[in-house]
Design a protein around this nucleic acid. Structure first.
Lengths: 167, 167
DNA sequence: TTGAATTTTCAATAATTATTGAAAATTAAA
DNA sequence: TTTAATTTTCAATAATTATTGAAAATTCAA
């Protein structure tokens, strides 16, 4: 297979994966391009590569940086900004997991904590119990997932340290 | 807090969580209503509860069943169909994880396998290497996540067995 | 300070996705 | 069989989300 075809496929699939998971296609595609690029790239490079507007590139890069999966760099004697993607895919995964927890899961967990106070005699016991049970189970799952993720991360850290030791 | 307010909050937040993760608001809200309901419910119940159309309820329920997180039931001497949500939230999570892997991740993994064949002398070594590296890392992460999920599931199975033993 | 290069913002627009609602299909009781 | 109850489908429409592009803001060299 030609490099260009492989690259095209990677960018398309990565973009599709993004949309399925609630991330804009462009944002995921920009990440894909940066992941494949050995060098950091400018906004103009990305506009050209993906055929998208300057505004879109600017906003998508901002988001990638907010998610903690891309960084901005400056080159000596150059006015333009250069961008680079986080290439350690484990760090990308844990970073995204953390961000999503914070942005999307935490509001749900807060809501569940708050409805623990629910105590309404006007409604049947079984309805109240069902709600308490569902809430408790989700909170419990969240807690267990957290500790699992922590283990995963520390396992990865060790793996990285091992690699270092072997050098 | 009143039961109705708690219920309303749960349904809204669960719906919002759904959209953030690429699941339609209604589908998530129907699941929320079913999770809170001690009894199974009909399409009419759900239409009334959420104020949505019959068609939407029908399609959303079909999706929930496809995802393996809801089931249809028949009551003796009744024409209508009743629906029930999977309430073991661990099973919901692992079910959704499996489905998403199959539907959304697998196409990416196949693509990554196929671009392993990439071998294009027209393009710089560093570009080719970057692509191979990114591909290998993602495949590796997917493999590790799988084994982690497997461990999680078996841990849950044991937890369930333990509960059983204690009875 | 200028002012040209560069980036960001955001209202307008396009593209996508979700929802409706009524017609068609299915089901099962009479 | 009929026929009425119920569910499904899907074209039309609404709602949401993504993208554009040009004006405004920022940055930095002169």
């Amino acid at each position: 297979m030609k490099y260009d075809e492989a690259k095209h496929r990677f960018i398309q699939q990565w973009g599709a994966l993004g949309t399925a998971w609630g991330i804009s296609r462009t944002m995921a595609q920009i990440q894909a391009v940066l992941l494949l690029s050995p060098e950091s790239m400018t906004a103009d490079d990305l506009m050209e590569e993906l055929g998208i507007s300057r505004g879109n590139v600017s906003m998508s890069l901002k988001s990638l940086i907010d998610w903690g999966v891309a960084t901005k760099e400056y080159k000596a004697g150059e006015r333009k900004e250069y961008f680079r993607a986080e290439k350690d895919i484990y760090r990308v995964a844990t970073q995204v997991a953390h961000e999503r927890r914070k942005r999307e899961l935490e509001p749900v967990l807060h809501m569940l904590e708050s409805i623990k106070e629910m105590d309404d005699k006007e409604v049947s016991k079984s309805k109240r119990e069902e709600m308490k049970k569902v809430g408790a189970n989700i909170l419990d799952l969240a807690k267990k997932s957290d500790s699992l993720l922590k283990k995963f991360i520390s396992a990865e850290k060790n793996w990285f340290l091992n690699k270092l030791m072997k050098l």
